[in-house]
Write a protein that binds this DNA or RNA. Structure first.
Length: 295
DNA sequence: CTGGTCTCCTGATCGC
DNA sequence: TGCGATCAGGAGACCA
């Protein structure tokens, strides 16, 4: 069994990337872009329809000659914003995506799988690199298009409250683990933090979401927030492969605090019972059969 | 509408 | 040492 698979950017990793990018990007003007893999970029029309990046005249769609004013995050997505009316970019890191800055004159350490390189007026470069290409970049025409796109996502997991979570799970007749991974229900939780949150809330991952009693949902919402806040404070989770890095190419440390994720067969940190694993929604799921019940 | 399954992709690891 | 098989997973496509 693999001790760890690899870093998976979820909300804490994406938020760490966003925060570390702010000092490099906000106030800077993009002067050019080098498109090395055109098919990593998609264009979202005002009606939501997604098309490939056109072969010509796509610099503006990639924000060339705009001044970056803000970096926002919803769930696992980062938006690079110039104004209400200029094009906006959404960046998904997928499984192995990296979004980072190289200082002026800086050397690109791993040139393979670098798909996009933006040049900034500071002389720095902004890199999107993604070996597995589950991530990508989406260009939207303006801020209204971003709002429409993000309206399809559930509320952000970092600030999820009990009442909202209960409402969104009330009709979910599937395992809670599966529901938590659904970005339309709750945005930002992936495989690592779903397992960690369910462990903290002492809920078995197979439990049908709609059957979880109110007080348990309240505990779950608090657990999700607590796990995410702690993970952000640790700079996210970086597993030994070192895939996940922030804008300054620094890894996180939260992997050291994982209670269940990646620990199948090892003992529960609370009760020492061997942790079990199973597949839910085709995702490896690890839980403590004692702390979280057998079903 | 809901929810389950498949697929995309590369790199690490394992068994022979 | 080399090489093929296996596995990991976010999210969209597809289907019942």
């Amino acid at each position: 069994m693999l001790a760890y698979a690899q870093a998976v950017p979820e909300l804490p990793e994406v938020e760490s990337v966003r925060r570390s990018l702010v000092p490099h990007l906000v106030g800077r003007t993009i002067t050019g872009v080098d498109i090395r893999r055109r098919d990593i970029v998609s264009v979202v029309a005002s009606d939501g329809k997604v098309t490939p990046l056109p072969a010509r005249n796509s610099a503006r769609m990639l924000m060339v000659r705009t001044r970056i004013n803000a970096l926002e995050r919803r769930g696992k997505q980062i938006a690079v914003i110039a104004s209400m009316d200029d094009p906006i970019l959404i960046v998904h890191l997928g499984m192995t995506g990296q979004f980072f800055c190289l200082p002026p004159g800086g050397h690109l350490p791993e040139a393979v799988h670098v798909h996009l390189v933006w040049r900034l007026d500071s002389g720095a470069r902004l890199i999107f690199r993604d070996p597995r290409r589950f991530g990508g970049v989406w260009s939207l025409a303006n801020h209204a298009a971003l709002e429409a796109r993000w309206a399809e996502l559930g509320p952000d997991a970092l600030t999820i409250d009990a009442r909202t979570l209960a409402t969104r799970l009330a009709r979910a007749k599937r395992p809670i683990k599966s529901a938590l991974l659904d970005q339309a229900i709750l945005a930002g939780v992936g495989n690592i933090y779903a397992d960690e949150s369910l462990f903290l809330a002492r809920i078995a991952p197979q439990t049908i979401a709609a059957t979880i009693p109110g007080p348990k949902i309240t505990k779950l919402a608090a657990s999700i927030r607590a796990v995410l806040v702690k993970a952000i404070a640790a700079g996210g989770s970086s597993l030994p492969d070192g895939m996940y890095i922030d804008a300054d190419r620094r890894p996180g440390a939260y992997q050291l605090a994982h209670s269940v994720y990646g620990r199948s067969g090892k003992t529960c940190p609370v009760c020492q019972t061997p942790l079990q694993s199973t597949l839910i929604s085709n995702r490896t799921t690890v839980w403590c059969p004692s702390c979280q019940g057998t079903v």
